[in-house]
Each structure stands twice: as structure tokens, then as C-alpha cells.
């Protein structure tokens, strides 16, 4: 029951709710636990509630770190 994926907010609704898009599937999710979410944001959803907002810059940084894993530090000139 811990499983969840990031969802894009596509519309803000009444009562602190919003509509999210999960790979084409629309769902209503509560925003009562997060602040300042706007349309277009990605949120981490769990049991019907958004728990946090996803930071696109941090996501890009993490992906860049994965890519760097391919570079062997032992073979770079700095390490030599």
C-alpha cells in the first residue's frame, strides 16, 4: 500500500481537491496536506492525498548523477 507514482496536477477543484493525470488516467486527489500547488506541478500521491511537490530541478540533478555513474573516476585525468 506504499506504492505510488508522481502525478501531474491538471485542474484545481473545490475543497482543497485537484484533478491529477496519471499516465492518461484522471483522478481526484486531496491537496489538504500540501501548500501552494499550481496547475502543472507534479505531486507525490499516496492513498488519495498529495504528500509533497516534486522539484523538477532536483529530479534533473539526480538523473545527471545516474548518467555520471558511467564515468570511471579512476580513468579521468583529475584522478590520475
Amino acid at each position: 500500500m506504499c506504492l505510488a507514482i508522481p502525478a501531474r496536477v491538471v485542474a484545481l477543484l473545490d475543497d482543497e481537491n485537484c484533478t491529477v493525470d496519471l499516465g492518461g488516467v484522471k483522478k481526484t486527489v486531496s491537496l489538504a496536506l500540501v501548500e501552494d500547488v499550481v496547475v502543472g506541478d507534479y505531486v507525490i500521491v499516496h492513498v488519495g492525498y498529495a504528500l509533497s511537490r516534486l522539484d523538477p530541478e532536483e529530479a534533473a540533478r539526480t538523473l545527471a548523477l545516474f548518467a555520471e555513474a558511467g564515468i570511471d573516476p579512476g580513468s579521468t585525468p583529475e584522478a590520475a
Binding site: P6, L33, V34, E35, I44, L51, S52, R53, L54, D55, P56, E58, A59, R61, T62
Partner: peptide
């Protein structure tokens, strides 16, 4: 913190207060 795209050091303060 590998999950920096969603986790901060403080966490969700609104949820914690509640």
C-alpha cells in the same frame, strides 16, 4: 538524500503539525 526531488530535511511541516 537520493530522493531530493521530493524529500527535504524538514519534511512536510503542515502534515507534521496536523
Amino acid at each position: 538524500n537520493e530522493f531530493s526531488r521530493a524529500v527535504s530535511r524538514e519534511g512536510n511541516l503542515k502534515a507534521q503539525a496536523l
